[in-house]
Amino acid sequence: MITRIVPQLLKQLFSRVATNPFPAVHMPPSLTEVMNNPDAPLSPPVPVGKRFRGRLSYDRSKCIGCRLCIKVCPANATEYLPGEKKIVIHNDRCCFCAQCTEICPVKCLKMGSEYMISSYERRANVVTDTGPAPETRQA
């Protein structure tokens, strides 16, 4: 009758909940409104690690148009603009392998820590230029 799990269950009954909370306790009337409102009382997301690979940023001015990133991208997320010798990144296709940031000779590509990137608009995930990376801007 009393098996090994009973003390464990009773211990767990009074210990902290192990799961992460949902962003909101109840489904809000309008989800988009809450997502767009920065002051909405949402449970904070779990912080990401140091090596986390999130949304790509692209420094257009630095890019030399060598097309190496296109060569290594497994998901065909980078598109070459032959006229301008620059690229466009489709973040909705990106598989976040960080291979392009590794091969880029001028390091104009960088993985950020942003991961909530889904959007109703496809164009929101097309990166043409995000300017110099934050570190270089500070320096």
């Binding site: 009773l10 767990q12 009954l13 909940v17 192990a18 799961t19 909370p21």
Partner: peptide, 10 residues
């Protein structure tokens, strides 16, 4: 609720 708490869920 009690069932969930015993399994460390909300």
């Amino acid at each position: 609720i009690v069932n969930a708490k015993m399994q460390r869920r909300y």
